[in-house]
């Protein structure tokens, strides 16, 4: 039964499927099967929107973490400043002790100890809830103590000079 025509058709089979149905066929099929109502669940647009929403949400959730990083950076900056001032304070305290060892005066101690206690409370606050306000208060505390020490040193210096003059004049 095989003839030239059959051979030709079999060789070129794909060329015979060259027509396309109009899009209305799928629309009717979809409508008849009630698939359109459910289509939101499979809608690419909807899933894309959901993806964007979750990305935005993730970014939003990341922001406080960024803030935390800022805080830890601020904390590091502060510890550098703190180390510098503490060094100055301990140098000055050492100098005053030398004077006091000489003449046993202890006038500034009470104020200084109060400031030190306040400082420890603020330092704790800085650890748990770091903020610019607490940081400023800490630095101010350090500066006040340095100022206090400077005044004390100056007084002691003046006293020393006058006692030396007195000693020389006598």
């Amino acid at each position: 039964m095989k003839d030239q025509l059959e051979d030709f058709v079999h060789r070129n089979r794909e060329g015979f499927d060259d027509r396309d149905p109009s899009p209305k066929v799928w629309n009717n099929v979809e409508a008849s099967l009630g698939l359109k109502n459910r289509s939101w669940f499979n809608s690419l647009v909807l899933w894309r929107a959901a993806a964007v929403f979750f990305m935005a949400l993730s970014l939003y959730l990341l922001i406080p973490k960024e803030g935390m990083k800022d805080n830890s950076l601020a904390m590091k900056e502060f510890t550098d400043v703190e180390a510098f001032y503490i060094q100055q304070i301990s140098n000055k305290v050492e100098l005053i002790r030398e004077f006091q060892a000489n003449d046993g005066l202890n006038g500034f101690t009470h104020d200084f100890q109060q400031l030190e206690a306040m400082y420890l409370v603020l330092r704790e606050e800085m650890k748990t809830r770091p903020s610019q306000k607490v940081k400023d208060a800490l630095v101010l505390n350090l500066l006040v103590r340095i100022d206090l020490l400077n005044k004390q040193l100056q007084q002691l210096e003046e006293k020393k000079v006058t006692t030396e003059k007195e000693q020389r004049s006598t």
Partner: peptide, 29 residues
């Protein structure tokens, strides 16, 4: 399970060849 995309994928895969089968029998679009 009622997945619309799966229906559409099957339709896309077969609609053209099936349409040509049908056209050859019925003779009109």
């Amino acid at each position: 399970a009622g997945d619309r995309d799966a229906h559409y994928q099957l339709y896309k895969m077969y609609s053209r060849s099936m349409f040509n089968v049908s056209y050859r029998i019925t003779g009109t679009q």
